[in-house]
């Protein structure tokens, strides 16, 4: 009797530097420490049945990671997934879960879009916000937005525009009254050719905006007019973050 769970988890703080190829062993060991009955694949080198729908670039943080876990025996999800969360390294936490019924569509089909967030340091926040708003609007009006992606194996031209479902720039004042920061949120399609937040930034920077020091994959799910409907909870993550709600 196996049980499948889909979970949403975070990868923030120091763990944002853990690469996608190291994730499997980090999770396998956490599952063993939490003593959960994870199922294993058959064969000479069995692997825990944990799958991740896609790879997050190293150094990008995320509150919108997902995983599908298959257990060989029933678990008590509230208790046991909290135990897993505690066993994972600090910065990786399980947020929500969903039992997967038989015949459910693939997890990837529930994750058609991603809400990304780019945050700049407080310097020049008002001017930067204004500039990004203008360029963001122009991008949404355009049919194409080609950028060059630099890779060790050669440069490639990527059209960012088809992936951009929506974007908005706002000024976020920290709850403690510290300096306001420029925040760009964008909903990008996951189906179709991959467009990374770095590509989006390249389309907006025109070489006169510094790269944002923090990029976060906020959540994944379905694009809706207000932002993104998160895949597991159904809650809407807004394109323009509600400062008061976040502070609460």
């Amino acid at each position: 009797m196996t049980q499948r769970y889909r979970i949403r988890w975070t990868k923030v703080g120091r763990t944002r530097f853990v690469s996608a190829r190291d994730l499997t062993s980090v999770w396998e060991r956490a599952l063993r420490r939490a003593d959960l009955p994870i199922a294993y694949s058959e064969g000479f080198t069995p692997h825990a049945k944990v799958s991740f729908p896609d790879a997050l670039p190293v150094s990008v943080s995320s509150t919108g990671e997902y995983a599908e876990l298959t257990f060989a025996a029933p678990i008590v999800p509230e208790r046991d997934l909290a135990r897993l969360s505690a066993a994972l390294p600090e910065g990786m936490d399980v947020l929500t879960y969903l039992v997967v019924p038989d015949g459910a569509p693939k997890l990837a089909r529930m994750l058609r879009a991603t809400l990304w967030e780019l945050v700049w340091p407080p310097a020049d926040a008002a001017a930067l916000t204004e500039l990004l708003r203008r360029r963001g609007d122009a991008l949404l009006r355009a049919d194409h937005a080609e950028v060059i992606r630099h890779r060790p194996d050669g440069d490639r031209t990527v059209d960012v525009r088809p992936a951009v479902l929506d974007l908005a720039t706002s000024l976020r004042r920290a709850p403690d009254g510290a300096d306001a920061r420029t925040v760009l949120r964008a909903v990008l399609r996951n189906d179709g050719p991959t467009v990374r937040p770095t590509d989006l930034f390249a389309a907006l920077s025109h070489d006169d905006i510094a790269a944002p020091p923090t990029t976060c994959r906020v959540a994944q799910g379905e694009h809706v007019p207000e932002g993104l409907r998160e895949a597991l909870s159904g809650e809407v993550a807004p394109l323009v973050p509600d400062v008061d709600a976040e502070a609460a």
Binding site: R14, T15, F17, R29, S59, P89
Partner: peptide
């Protein structure tokens, strides 16, 4: 921390292990 995205295998510098 802001320099780590520029280097190979940044996870080796962060600590935080079990």
């Amino acid at each position: 921390e802001p320099l780590l995205p520029q280097v190979r295998k940044p996870a080796q510098y962060v600590g935080g292990e079990h």
